[in-house]
């Protein structure tokens, strides 16, 4: 029996509020694993992804889902995707790596990023204050993912529902990022 034990601290203290019809909350239990495709082994990774999760490799900028819809595969860069899913505890990497059986190089990104869910009818009016991308429904479809910068901070954006988005941002600057969102809500609505 160890003398000490460690507890997990959410980067934003489990933030969750609604202002002016905009629900903004920190994602609880985010598993985020990067998968890099070994050189010239796209087919092997595609097969492993198909077999393990029933998913296709998404193109860069696109989102694919596992057959049980529990895992989103985000096409981040040529030869690199992220698997995003709900996961409690620190060992998210195993959930992906075990099924890939060496077909991809995995790196745990769960603690690198903080997830925020923002939703509400006026969500785009809020985000246009900081997001340089066109988030209109026809310009940013349900299967799209993009990495960009908002207020000088890295952000990965994908959709969740009609008027909802998930924003992933670097953990170390997450408080500044949250502040940017709060200011945007206050200013825009």
């Amino acid at each position: 029996m160890a003398e000490f034990s460690l507890y997990a601290t959410p980067a934003l203290g489990g933030y969750s509020t609604t202002h002016d019809g905009i629900a903004l909350e920190e994602l609880d239990g985010l598993g985020l694993i990067s998968i890099a495709t070994p050189l010239d082994s796209d087919a092997a990774l595609a097969a492993a992804l198909k077999k393990g999760f029933g998913a296709e490799i998404p193109a860069v900028g696109k989102v694919a889902s596992s057959s049980d819809s529990k895992i989103r595969f985000l096409g981040m860069a040529p030869g690199q995707l992220f698997a995003a899913f709900e996961h409690d505890g620190p060992n998210a990497e195993g959930a992906i790596a075990d099924k890939l059986a060496g077909a991809g190089y995995t790196t745990d990104q769960s603690d690198v990023w903080v997830g925020l869910r923002i939703a509400g009818p006026e969500v785009r009016t809020v985000l246009e204050r900081i997001c340089p991308l066109d988030l209109a429904p026809n310009a940013f479809a349900q299967d799209k993912v993009a990495r960009t910068a908002m207020e000088h901070m890295a952000a990965i954006v994908f959709r969740e529902g009609e008027d909802g988005f998930v924003l992933l941002t670097a953990r170390s600057s997450a408080k500044s990022f949250l502040h940017a969102l709060e200011v945007s809500i206050a200013n825009a609505l």
Partner: peptide, 14 residues
């Protein structure tokens, strides 16, 4: 015409 290198730092890192 000039061919030049740009890094998509806040994007896909290409």
């Amino acid at each position: 015409e000039h061919r030049e290198l740009w890094f998509h730092e806040q994007g896909d890192r290409s």
